[in-house]
Design a protein around this nucleic acid. Sequence first.
DNA 1: TCCCTACCGTGATG
DNA 2: GTACATCACGGTAGGGA
Length: 811
Amino acid sequence: MKTNFIPIDYDYFDLNGRNFVRIIGRDESGKRICVVDEYNPNFWAILKDGLSEKKIKSLVEKIKKIEVESGGRKSKVEKVEIHDKNFLGKKVKALKIFVTNHKDMHAVADKLKIKEIEKRREYDIPLISKYIIEKNVDPLVWHEVIGDYIGSGEFGGIADVLKVDVCIKANKISKAKEQKEFNPRILAYDIEANELELGKGKVLMISLYGKNFSKVLTWKYDGKKQDFVEYFKDEAEMLEKFVEYVHEYSPDILVGYFSDGFDLPYLQSAAARNKIKLSLGLDQKPPTFTHGRISSGKISGIVHIDLFRFIKTVYAQYLQSETLGLGEVAAELCGEKKLEFDFAKIGKMNGSDWKKFFEYNLMDAKITYKLAEKIWPDMLEFTRIIKEPLFGISRDSMSSHVENYLLHNLNRFNEIAEKRPTHDEIRRRRSLGKYEGAFVLQPTPGLYENLVMFDFSSMYASVIVTYNLSLSTFLGEGKDEKGNKTLKFSKKKGFFPELLEEIIYLRRKYKEEYKKDKNPLTKARSNAYKLLANTAYGYQGFFGARYYCREAAMATSAFAKKNILEVIEKIKKEGYEIVYSDTDSIAFLRKNRSKEEVLNFLKKLNKSLPGIMELDLEDFYKRGLFVSKRTTEAGAKKKYALISENGKLKVRGFETVRRDWCNLARNLQKKVLEKILREGNEKSALKIVKEVIKKIKTRQVNKEDLIIKTQLKKPIEEYLSQGPHVIAAKKMEMRGLPISVGMLVEYFVGETNKKGGRIRDKVFLPDENVPYEIDYYLNNQILPAVENIFEVFNIKLKDIINGYSQKKLFT
DNA sequence: TCCCTACCGTGATG
DNA sequence: GTACATCACGGTAGGGA
């Protein structure tokens, strides 16, 4: 038989000691399909230079005899092939060694620590990745499969157990001629429990939301029944119905928010307590959880996605949200609002409280669904570009994404993959310490007019490409004419810079396409390449990378610095005044020159840049404000505010954009900056400050504007320094409130009977009925937020706050 | 108890 | 352990006067 299908989930199983890949997908009519494919596990043995053919032949014969046995399974070397390959850009002779079972490759590799073999590689690459690389069965891409139906009892009875429409043993899989659109069936879920801690409480309700599908399941009968809720006799019955509904809906993707850390393990433990099986998998098996710092919940045949994890690694840097909670993220990305619910009520709820609770729970499932739909294009594009299955794509770190992209493209260079670093190697790399990073120019404080900002596009990536900086092109240390130490890199293009050049090229191409045709897919594609390009530099400096090269990372930042300093000199020579520069951007004064002149100059500059380095116009700005540091006269770096010609504000580094300052200070600072930038002077801004000072002194400020939020970054007992937020967290713990690493701790500074003293002795939780301390908010929040801004205009705000220089107020 | 400084810790920039 | 270095700044810890 022959059919088109799209691979969604990958797994493998053993039969008679051999590995078979099991792909779950859909065919073009939407039927769920299982494709079983053969895979012959293999790894590489790179031979020592200059072995004679005779020697190699006898070595091959020796290797062919290797057998290992572990856990009742026997594996042997099935086949050995001799290949001409590249390793880190160098030509090598290598043996491709096929082993019966993937799990025994380590054991076989261990037996090859012999003098003729220089290195053993690729036994540490997961089977599914190797399979995709070798057989080109790429995830979320349409394929044509030719094969035979799997009958009852065949392949370990796979067709009897799996809840799929068709089961096929593949004979040949190739790319489909036509790439149709693919819309996965997404089902979102969310649970509520009476205790947050795993294993402690019970699951009170479960909500499900999908296309034309909306359910709330519960076993709580308090008050009158709601017509949108399904009631069950107990928790166990509810859990069983949940499993049934999941199978009925038949999702490709089951999605939750923080569900790796909460919902799925909670359901699993509730099922265990009730002595039932949470048989969510297409093979009727319960979810499994990978070990690791954060465990990942895997459901066989259905891709379980914890949206929070994908958003955290891939999306977070582009979000304005101060936390990555479902409410804030969904509000920003899809304009969906969470409902309100007072969790303090749990335990003493009446009928209408329950109704609210059910609605709240369902709304969470609904906005999770909407969010999943919204970011589906990004997950799809990431999957197609990196070629790893969706399950990993939605959870992997950025370094893994870069690395997987490399691994899936090495074949084009006939390259054997480098191994993962060992623990010892990681320790060594980490012990090397920091190397010199970017250049930041110290600005002179002041209010400037008519600024121009240039910036390099994907600067570090284009430096890597331009100067060919990578592990495989690193030649070692050398000396320049003056005898200074240098790092040498070969002229011959390495695969890393070459792939990166392609990424940059594709990024530019898809960015243009997006400009012409603004749709979520072209945007997601362009964005994925941008992220890869931006992370490539960090990857080479990352201690856990296969292609770690500290020298390449050092050289990248050094060449970047050299280039930007040269451009700064050229801009100065042209007669402009430089105001600021950080890493890849330069701000300078246009003075009386026209924009055309500036743009022509930019063109001229670009012609002088090496390789693929490219300088862009970031924008023209009407005004810009730079302030001094708090304690010295020197200009502060990474702290400025600009207003563009169409009136848009760009605020960087100021307290306005820092979430660990109270809203009163942040909002006031923002208003002050805006007034000054719009009006070109400080007059009306000063008025606003005075009003706020008065409000504080007369206790007219709402407490919510005084709350300070700080993240708890580690368990409280690990803190050496008892800062205010640690004290607040301790207070919460004493009261039995849930605290966890990563949460935002909220507190305010209140009045106590002692004057002065430590802040931490005056920390109160938001609900404590204590008046706020006027002096603290004046001197530690408002003053520091605006003092330096007014100093630019020679106004001493300290005197005004303390009421010394009343005369000055009215000048 | 006051004052100074080193260090801790968070969260920003690019 | 989960891309990099650079920077600002509040607040505590801890020693000396």
